[in-house]
Design a protein around this nucleic acid. Sequence first.
DNA 1: ACCCATAAGTTCCCTCAGGGAACTCGGGTA
DNA 2: TACCCGAGTTCCCTGAGGGAACTTATGGGT
Lengths: 177, 177
Amino acid sequence: MTRTPLADVACSIARATDLFGDAWTALIMRDVLTGVTRFDDLAHDLGISRKVLAARLSRLVEEGVLVRERYQERPPREHYRATPKGEELYPVLLALMEWGDRWYAGPAGPPARIRHLGCGRDTTPVSACAHCGEPLTVGNTTQLPGPGGRTGPGTRVLGPLLTAREDAPGAERPAEV
Amino acid sequence: MTRTPLADVACSIARATDLFGDAWTALIMRDVLTGVTRFDDLAHDLGISRKVLAARLSRLVEEGVLVRERYQERPPREHYRATPKGEELYPVLLALMEWGDRWYAGPAGPPARIRHLGCGRDTTPVSACAHCGEPLTVGNTTQLPGPGGRTGPGTRVLGPLLTAREDAPGAERPAEV
DNA sequence: ACCCATAAGTTCCCTCAGGGAACTCGGGTA
DNA sequence: TACCCGAGTTCCCTGAGGGAACTTATGGGT
């Protein structure tokens, strides 16, 4: 499943993509979180090969993202539900959906809306600063080494944070926001 | 590159994962957005096969997520930079990183920090409601059919919307927010 | 002039993960 | 008894990915 030992890398994005960086996994989580929890339903809905679906589900269960639960005794039937760890992938799905809506929605508009029950309005998800609530963008953030990062030679952080090479690019990022 | 014609499905998550639902693509975007923009640097940094890197980069350029730019004439040298469409993938990366931090950071803490230049503090990204600023969770949201989706029997929403596709090849520009 | 280095790919071979479809297994239901 | 159902598992086959060598254009060192 793992192309490279990404899971061992000191980068949380790499750790996350090791599990989640697969189109099927994202779509499985989307389905499970929206109520499609049974094997056959998932297989039909996604058009995924049953073999791969079984592999993905057991990986997700191993990782503690889903649990396999019996929802009926006679005959015995199992389905899959999200754990808290799985539910917390929701922001990733929202971010993907928002991006897809912005760049691929047809003239009619996006295929789905998200209603926020808290304020009762249809909304769009924004990646906000936990402290001040302002949107976080490439332009208004920097990545710094964290406590859990091995800070040896060759260590990278969010990204490179690199030993980098500001020598290369002539024009740096246009810093629009 | 596409396992199934996910890109044609009327679900923005499916559309997004068709491009982004690949561990390498996510990591490439992480690198490019943090300053690793040259082919060899990316190849080294990611440990990706050069063949696959070339394929991913040209796909990302095709999709308008990256641009290939000449940063030096003699000898001719090219590198890759994010377009606005590419920069808008940042929230997805932040969401992945946040999840990875929460569930995989060692006792020492996360490997990287995000400093929000707006308020000057190290922060964590929160998926917030664009209207009221409250965090969006599985529990406090519902998914409803959107204007660009089909509302027939069997239609799902956050999900496939799967009979789908009448509006598939849609416009490229997102509505300005 | 000659040799080596660098950046950015391309090409080749080989393995293994994914698609597709059939098969299994436990347990109903008519 | 015969026939469904849900939930997987097994089989074969193709093609995407890993790894390493090769290419092209240019510059530097001696």
